[in-house]
Write a protein that binds this DNA or RNA. Structure first.
Length: 563
RNA sequence: UGGGGGAUAGUUUAACGGUAGAACUUCCGGCUCUGGACCGGACGGCCCAGGUUCGAAUCCUGGUCCCCCAGCCA
């Protein structure tokens, strides 16, 4: 096998299976599907599934469907149907004409349920929910047959039709597949396949008052659509025998196969739709698209490009072992993409005023700045400079430790794209807080280089006081304080009270007033930022997507306590 | 104690009986008009015990640990 062949052969076990099926002729082409239930917003865990399903379809020349598994009208909404489509599209995937809803199959599924009844493979059970539970047995004890299990086919058919007709109240009866109450696999202990729900469905309205369960809808919908490889997460492994049983016992037009892979977990993050829904409902976050949320819409609002999410998913791989990925990998993927594409700007988050005493009062000039050192095609822009500027508070220390290369009394540093300045005086308020610095500049260093060849260790970003625009900047940290939120006690107690930091009165270079929504920019030496939808022309609001790697912070942290 | 899965560096993931490799993280160094980026280097792993084999992460046996399942959720 040559090197390139070896590369083609490499991949995850799912791709291995598909390749083998294709090679052996078990499948003529590949059809996959992404099957969300429209009861919440998509998150980065879904992105893994989306990239897998759409990815393999594309790689093997097949197609991937978007199918809503909308079988439970009590918790599904139009809002979610719309947001899910937006998010999948935004991630960069296209289902073409292949948009489906399990609810489109309700009539067919109903017919198949009657078919099962006719074959004496399903029966209407009058037991209450509680009684059914008691009959089900436990993990270690077999279940007991329902007293209604041997009802005559005609009686079952009659009752099931009357269930559909709305003669019974919610929960009064269910339709169950007749399989094996003694099975070690609880899913095979006569699973409920239809239940009575007098609820309005987002798509079928009030046409139905009985709805198929997931198990009765999923595999059959796969078969109807011609799905060849039905990829889902590990918790459905136990359902595969039921999936197969239904396919085997129903006159379905195709024979799909289910394969399971491990879902994504992220440290310091929750990827449970139930819990995310709770955070939104409980007001712990601002909504599904709160930038601290692991939702696709939250990541988008934070400024994370779709390409970074795709890259991340590619890097974490696909396997069957439980896994929890470090947030650092996601951050890395975000930075790596943005480093190549994001334009640079100057923005001061925590301003400290600097007066350059030997610079003419009232004078100003435009200095050239490079938009993206990683991309010459991004060109240059000019940045206004004047006598009074702002620098970052963290870039000055009155009594600096050894490895601090930034501004300090008597020290010379470079202002990015501007001049060398030297700190000559420190002004403080009554409380001893530094309020202003007095500096001098060297006119010969215009642009940032000294003709005499002298070097400085530090380069600071800055914004002209007279020209800069004011903005609010929002910084985000992990939503939870512990790597395994909710592992002990109430998860709400694990919410990080400092997950959101709002900085008012930040000073940004004037070009930032023209930032476009959806565009992520780098504030030099700080990180990547994007305009938040809360922004307006008279009140700019930026979100920090991710900070730049900060080796000074590490040095500082290490030195802390050591003097 | 039933059934179904899984164990390879700190994290994620390769290997398909033939030299355990990568990425991220961490650390060290270089370079730099971003303490960014980039470049170079280092640390670090096959769950355990037997067995088969010239050779085992891989095959066999027996353990151990972890995850999932008792919704009329998906």
């Amino acid at each position: 096998m040559s090197g390139t062949e070896a590369e083609e052969r490499s991949g995850d076990f799912i791709r291995d299976i598909i390749r083998a099926d294709l090679d052996a002729g078990r499948a003529g082409s590949v059809v996959t599907r992404f099957p969300p239930e429209p009861n919440g917003y998509l998150h980065i865990g879904h992105a893994k599934s989306i990239c897998l399903n759409f990815g393999v379809a594309e790689e093997f020349g097949g197609r991937c469907h978007l199918r809503f598994d909308d079988t439970n009208p009590t918790r599904e909404e139009h809002e979610f149907i719309a947001s899910i489509q937006d998010d999948v599209r935004w991630l960069g995937f296209d289902w073409g004409d292949h948009l489906y809803f399990a609810s489109d199959n309700f009539e067919t599924l109903y017919g198949w349920a009657e078919h099962l009844i006719s074959e004496a493979k399903a029966y209407v059970d009058d037991l209450s929910q509680d009684e059914i539970r008691k009959h089900r047995g436990t993990l270690t004890e077999p279940g007991r047959n329902s007293p209604y299990r041997e009802r005559a086919v005609e009686k079952n058919l009659d009752l099931f039709r009357r269930m559909r007709a709305g003669e019974f109240a919610d929960g009064a009866r269910v339709l169950r597949a007749k399989i094996d109450m003694a099975s070690g696999n609880i899913n095979l202990r006569d699973p409920v396949i239809y239940r009575i729900l007098h609820a309005e469905h987002p798509r079928t309205g009030n046409a139905w008052c009985i709805y198929p369960t997931y198990d009765f809808a999923h595999g059959q919908s796969d078969a109807i659509e011609g799905v060849t490889h039905s990829l889902c997460t590990l918790e459905f492994e136990d359902h595969r025998p039921l999936y197969d049983w239904l396919i085997d016992n129903l006159p379905v037009p195709a024979r799909p196969r289910q394969y399971e892979f491990a879902r994504l977990n992220l440290f310091y993050t929750v990827l449970s739709k139930r819990i995310l829904t709770g955070l939104v409902a409980g007001g712990q976050v601002g909504g599904w698209d709160d930038p601290r949320m692991p939702t696709i819409s939250g990541l988008r609002r934070r400024g994370v490009p779709a390409a970074a999410i795709r890259d991340f998913v590619k890097r974490i791989g696909i396997s069957k072992s439980d896994n929890t990925v470090e947030v650092a990998l996601l951050d890395h993927c975000i930075r790596e993409g943005l480093n190549k594409t994001a334009e640079r700007r100057l923005g001061v988050l925590r301003p400290l005023k600097v007066v350059i005493e030997n610079y003419d009062e009232g004078a100003e000039e435009e200095l050239d700045a490079i938009n993206n050192p990683e991309d010459a095609a991004a060109g240059t822009r000019t940045v206004p400079f004047s006598r009074e500027i702002y620098i970052e508070r963290d870039d000055f220390m009155e009594d600096p430790p050894k490895k601090f290369f930034r501004l300090a009394p008597g020290r010379e540093v470079r202002l990015r794209y501007a001049y060398f300045i030297t700190c000559t005086d420190v002004i403080k308020d009554d409380a001893g807080v530094v309020t202003e610095l007095r500096c001098t500049y060297d006119p010969a260093t215009r642009g940032g280089n000294a003709p005499d060849g002298r070097k400085v260790r530090g380069t600071l970003h800055w914004v002209s006081a007279a020209h800069g625009v004011e903005a609010e900047v929002r910084l985000f940290d992990h939503l939870f304080t512990r790597p395994d939120p909710g592992a002990e006690g109430d998860i709400v107690d694990d919410i990080n009270p400092e997950s959101l930091t709002v900085l008012k009165r930040c000073r940004l270079e004037p070009a930032l007033a023209d930032a476009r929504p959806g565009e992520t920019l780098q504030f030099e030496r700080q990180g990547y930022f994007c305009l938040d939808p809360d922004s307006s022309p008279d009140k700019l609001v930026f979100n920090r997507t991710v900070a730049l790697r900060d080796s000074w912070a590490k040095i500082k942290a290490k030195g802390a306590g050591k003097g």
